[in-house]
Computed example of a mutant assay.
Amino acid sequence: MGGAPERADGCGARVRGRSAGSGRLSVTARTRGWRDRAAAELAAAALATREETVGDVLVVGDRTGVLARALGDRGAAVHRWGRRLGEGEVVSAWPPDGTVVLSAVRLPRSRAELAFAVHAAAARTRPGGTIAVYGANDEGIRSADRALAAVAENVTTLRVGGHCRVVAGRRSEAHADGGPDVFAIDFELSADDWGSQRLRGCGGRYRTWPGVFGGAGLDAGTRALVRVMAGFDRSPERVLDFGCGWGPLARAARALWPDARVEALDVDALAVRAVAANAPGVEARLGDRVEGAACYDLIVANPPYHDGKEEDTRVIEALFSDGAGALREGGCMVLVVQRRLPVPRLAAARFRRARPLADEGIYRVWELVGPL
């Protein structure tokens, strides 16, 4: 198990494999709530005194570094892994090869994602080793023991406090490492689902994973943006899908402009894996920031504006800050967000003009022309 260095990819994306340390942290790493820190501190108190901490341990999805430091201070050889930028020194679809005596998993956002995470941890934990899950009460940690019981025995609550909880068990002998594809979600979209005659060729089977943005289908916001893209009378030469999820916007761009260079960017390694399966020919990679000057004719995005339970527009603000300078002369950014978000105000410092192109229920599609 090892770390991944920062990689600058020229005109495209800044990729940070290490979220802690000197220099500017990634947007993902900076958007932390009180739940992350409180849960990590409780897990540190519960786990740092255990005998296993003298060996190799795996910390999964910890955005604070609190637990990793506490275990390291006790003499453990700590390996930090996550599927998203900011969650570990190694960011990948599945933990690197190796065996640990203890794994600690930060409670993910959904039950399906938790099942994925505990199986990934179990794949690297020796039989009889400890697997722990920690999180806040209002995130659903009280029911985490059921997911943990699928890979561990003698599951119990180790510690409660600060509106958080730590549960743990001993990795069972029966668990087998099936890899990430065991958790793949396959689904179908008909030609009509894409909402445009120009995109009828996009009907077919697609693949995603628990927690990848977009779910297993096309959400209302993405549908609205895809319809706007299909109505463009331009032919961009280079397109970026920022925050690509499983790849619907990138797939649409490839169908609409087959001669264009289409790139896709996401903080989730499983999203990158999904785009490789769903949109052949698209250059998909890990990243959380757009870089370069005058690179793209079109940037499309259905960006996140929540960090867990809290509304957070910092990803959008960073996209506007970086994306404006990455547009070529005559280029534009087209994004979909909820109508209540003040896009003109957020974009005013970077773009010459912001205008609405379409409304779909609570969603609005905006065109941003720039830079200033």
Rank of each mutant, 00 (worst) to 15 (best):
G3F: 11
A4Q: 13
A4E: 12
A4H: 11
E6R: 15
C11Y: 13
R16S: 14
R18C: 06
S19V: 12
G21I: 02
L25C: 06
R30G: 10
T31Y: 07
R32H: 07
W34Y: 12
A43G: 13
A43C: 12
A43P: 10
A45T: 03
T49L: 08
E51S: 13
E51C: 01
E52Q: 06
E52H: 01
D56K: 05
V57S: 06
V60H: 05
T64G: 02
G65C: 08
G65V: 11
V66A: 04
R69C: 09
A70N: 05
A76R: 13
R84E: 09
L85N: 02
A93W: 00
P96M: 10
D97C: 08
G98H: 04
A104T: 08
R106C: 04
S110M: 02
R111N: 10
E113A: 13
E113D: 11
E113C: 05
V118E: 02
A123C: 09
R124E: 01
R126S: 11
T130H: 06
T130F: 05
I131V: 14
I131E: 01
Y134H: 12
D138H: 07
R142F: 10
R146Q: 13
A147L: 03
A152G: 00
V160F: 02
R165V: 09
R165T: 08
G169W: 06
R171K: 12
S172C: 11
E173D: 14
G179R: 07
A184T: 13
D186M: 04
S190Y: 05
W194Y: 00
Q197T: 15
R198V: 06
R198Q: 10
G204S: 14
G204A: 14
R205A: 15
W209G: 07
G215R: 03
G215E: 01
G215H: 03
G217F: 14
L218H: 12
D219T: 00
R223N: 00
R223H: 05
A224Y: 02
A224W: 01
A230M: 02
D233H: 12
R234E: 10
R238D: 01
W246L: 11
A250W: 03
R254D: 04
W257C: 09
P258R: 08
D259E: 15
L270F: 09
L270E: 11
E283I: 09
D288Y: 01
R289I: 01
A294E: 11
N302F: 06
N302L: 06
N302H: 10
P303V: 09
P304H: 09
Y305K: 04
H306T: 12
H306A: 10
K309H: 05
E310C: 00
T313F: 15
R314M: 08
I316G: 02
L319F: 11
A326H: 05
V343H: 00
V343S: 02
L346Q: 15
L346Y: 13
L346H: 14
A349F: 03
P356I: 04
L357M: 14
D359I: 02
Y363K: 01
Y363R: 00
V365Y: 04
L368E: 01
P371C: 06
